[in-house]
């Protein structure tokens, strides 16, 4: 009987869905052939990798309180091993598209894939 949906509930759901869509739209990036994975730890850039130019898979280790390993393949990247308690980063799996991220919060490590900057196209000949 308490579970009757009220007008306010509908507004709450609508608000959540709209917020989610707004963030989705504002973080959406077009899929491009050129893909750069940027690995940062506590906002310090550890590595920038041109994923479309990777020929052989390899791994990158990072340190800190919760060290771990990142595996790079052609066009994709992932956390393959981490010492953090929650393992959210490893569970995220491969990321492949510009705009996608994989995060290890305890270690402070973020992998973000950046696409080709459309403005650069005009400058670089």
């Amino acid at each position: 009987m308490r579970l009757k949906l009220k007008l306010g509930d509908v507004l709450v759901i609508l608000g959540i869905v709209l917020t989610a869509f707004f963030i989705l739209v504002s973080t959406y990036e077009k899929n491009t052939i050129e893909k750069t994975a940027v690995i940062t730890q506590n906002n310090i850039v550890l590595d920038r990798i041109r994923l479309d130019r990777v020929s052989e898979p390899y791994t990158i280790n990072y340190g800190g309180d919760y060290p771990g390993t990142i595996t790079v393949e052609n066009g994709s990247i992932r956390f393959s091993h981490a010492e953090c308690p929650d393992q959210v980063c490893v569970d995220t799996g491969w990321i492949t598209r510009p705009g996608q991220i994989a995060v290890c919060i305890p270690a402070g490590v973020i992998i973000k894939i950046e696409g080709q900057d459309p403005d650069l196209d005009i400058i670089v000949k």
Partner: peptide
């Protein structure tokens, strides 16, 4: 309980 239920 007027405007919101437990759900909201």
């Amino acid at each position: 309980p007027k405007f919101f239920s437990v759900i909201g």
